[in-house]
Amino acid sequence: MGESDIIRFLAMWELIHESADEGLKAAIARGSAQESGDMARDPGAFVDGLTAMVDAEKDRIKTGLSSSAKGGEPTGQADGSKTSVVSTLPPVQASIDDLRFEIAALRGQVESLTTSVDALSSRLENAGLNSIRVQSGSSCRYPKD
């Protein structure tokens, strides 16, 4: 491949990039100008609408990154006004969170089972079930041992 071929290839690459960029900007402009329901008009309108949605998301990410650089909330979603359809957590973090949840859920189930076993044991030991002292009126207070 000669020198002029490389230049020509890079020029074509730049041309593709430039055309795509202009096309994208035009699609964003058309998509942003759509009224509610316009996206369903035809496939072209759908692509324009989708492109505008992607651009809006890009702006949200930019705002989030800039806020993060200034020491603010990193995701740009601190106000809860918009949550991503696709999970924002990195996969490893999500797996760790899932494992933590499994362990905590098991701990909860063990606590519940322990209560049941203790209650059964105490029923076996002592048949007296009147240890809750109900006060007159609508509320009862449990004495601390």
């Binding site: 203790d118 105490s122 029923r123 240890s131 809750i132 509320s139 041992d145």
Partner: peptide, 18 residues
Amino acid sequence: IMCELGSVSHEYFESFDT
């Protein structure tokens, strides 16, 4: 409550509106 929670209810409930 007594059958299923036993003495735990004393430990964890500060008050209970009947």
